[in-house]
Amino acid sequence: MSKFKAALQSQVGRKLITGITGLGLVLFIIVHLLGNLSYFGGPEAINTYSHTLHELGGLLWAARLGLLVFFLFHIYLGISIWLEKRRARPVGYESYNSRGVPSRQSWSARSMIITGVILLVFVVFHLNTFAFHDFQTTVINGVEMHDVHARLTEVFQHEVYTISYVLTMVLLGMHLRHGVWSSFQSLGWMSRNSNPVVYSIAYILGLIIAVGFIGLPVSIYFGLV
């Protein structure tokens, strides 16, 4: 067992866990996005979706717990890798430039710690705004349920919330642009041929997710829906 314990603390293991938890969080984000998009189906669609989710009970709590564990590991390792990087080069360069392709040292790659920390702060506020909110109730098909639709419509009338939400989603897209590709490389799934393909897919995925999340608040704010 000590072999596995050592492995988790090794530089390979640390990236492996960062990658696995990162991909797990991406899956959650995709499901979350699909849930959000149900707003466009009207109050009945999103409220019923939310209600069905809450009806899962124990299963939902298990998923929440798993999500929390993934999140904590991902945060811990991300910060730890950043601290380690600072320790590994106590004196920096006076002049430093990337050589360019095949380097993957993009803006998103260099700012993972910044986008990551901002996303963490966002999640705290986000949970406070929605998950821990005392929802009004509504009755659909004779069943009383949380009126998620009303809450969303109310929140995204506010400029500050809408703007900060949109900006954070841009940062999320950036985080995924490097993160998704990087996860596959960390898991050792990359070959010379698949590398450019996965790198492009990560870009497209980051873009789709960012645009997907931005669509809802913008539509509500401008009264398009």
Binding site: Q11, R14, K15, I81, E84, K85, R87, A88, R89, S98, R99, P102, S103, R104, Q105, A109, R110, M112, H178, W181, S182, Q185, S186
Partner: peptide, 10 residues
């Protein structure tokens, strides 16, 4: 004392 790899590919 080398750092972790962040897949920068530099």
């Amino acid at each position: 004392g080398f750092g972790d790899c962040s897949n920068f590919a530099e």
